[in-house]
Design a protein around this nucleic acid. Structure first.
Lengths: 202, 202
DNA sequence: GGACTGACAGATTTCACTATCTGTCAGTCC
DNA sequence: GGACTGACAGATAGTGAAATCTGTCAGTCC
């Protein structure tokens, strides 16, 4: 008899099975086979197949969050930090999609399966944006009376460069120019923004 | 024998068949049946099923372009015109998606089928944006050294509010707030924008 | 006695088979 | 003689029986 079966070992095996067979073909039986146990044992640790896949997704998103944690470098302006953060997010997504399209598609399916997870994931990243904008407001580099709403607006305005629905556009040779133009427009806006409710356009 | 079969009559019948059966079920035989002719006759006017559907799509997009033509009202600032135009586009799309989801889905499938058409459609709308921004530059309300690139940036930054991939989010009760926040941010940026290449963030 | 197995019922997926559809064209009909 | 038909071949989609999968649980094995 080998070591006792752990949830951790099941998650690792499930990731491997998903990587090899893809989300449509990966079965609980496959996972059990990879671990050399019966599939009944897997159900001892995860109540349903959905719960198992959700756990894998959560694990993967946690790693994404950690990688995106912004560095508050003293030598950088908030605008520079914001541009670097958005570029990093874009580069990571683009690289993942271009270099490993199947794995990207697999995790896209997993993320879409869960209702609550994507929302939490986005809130986390928008929170990171809010911290950068907040730093800019403190140095009077940016103007806004609602940091969170503005962070959400920056997130929404850059949707094309992080939302997986637009992934196919990321191969376009001019996509970096489009990204730069949008980010420049946003940064210009942050220097001179008013809240939506107080906004008189004239 | 009825009137001679015209391309126009075939297009009208095809629209009706698409509306009733949806894009997956609508066949050339159905169209011919609706017109009381054999399906061979339809092929006399359109070389392939794809060409027929493309003609229907082109017809529909032309109507969309016409409806979005901006009004250069003397009493409005460029910012007001821009906000009105973007709101109109958003309202039209949202209304279409919420009120007639099946028809919206049908035309979404049709648009995706053709390679060249969507590109032309977007260029047309970005051109309308460019004219509004150009008007703002002339009155020194907006600052930019590349009107077309900036128009494209405004289009990209508002993707979430016109790209059909985001249609499901348009039912969110807070979507109008998100829209207002993004548009305010963009308009603030247009007042103080620099080109991507000349942009020093510090 | 608690981790694990394997047989099982119901749900889902697969696959071979059949229907229908697309596109062609020789022939018909004013 | 030109618009139209309808039978046809190859391609595509629908269908239903068989195989597989999910989730359960009584029983096995240290």
């Amino acid at each position: 008899m080998a070591e006792a079966l752990t949830s951790e070992a099941i998650l690792v095996a499930t990731e491997e099975v998903l990587r090899r067979y893809g989300p449509a073909k990966a079965t609980v039986v496959d996972v059990a086979k990879a671990l050399g146990v019966s599939h009944g044992s897997v159900y001892r640790h995860f109540a349903t197949k959905a719960a198992l896949r959700e756990a894998v997704t959560r694990r993967w998103l946690d790693a994404q969050h950690a990688a995106m944690e912004p560095a508050f470098d003293q030598g950088l302006t908030a605008a520079e930090m914001l541009r670097i953060w958005l570029q990093k997010l874009f580069d990571r997504k683009k690289h993942s999609h271009v270099e490993e399209p199947e794995l990207f598609a697999t995790y896209l399916v997993l993320v879409r399966e869960s209702r609550a997870i994507p929302e939490f994931h986005i809130e986390h990243l928008v929170g990171q944006l809010a911290r950068i904008i907040s730093a800019g407001v403190e140095t009077h580099e940016f103007v806004t009376d609602d940091v969170n709403a503005t962070a959400q607006a920056v997130w929404d305005a850059t949707d094309r460069f992080h939302h997986p629905a637009h992934a196919q556009e990321w191969g376009d040779p001019h996509i970096q120019d489009a990204f730069d133009a949008v980010v420049s427009l946003i940064i210009a806006g942050l220097r001179y923004n008013r809240s939506p409710s107080a906004a008189g356009d004239a």
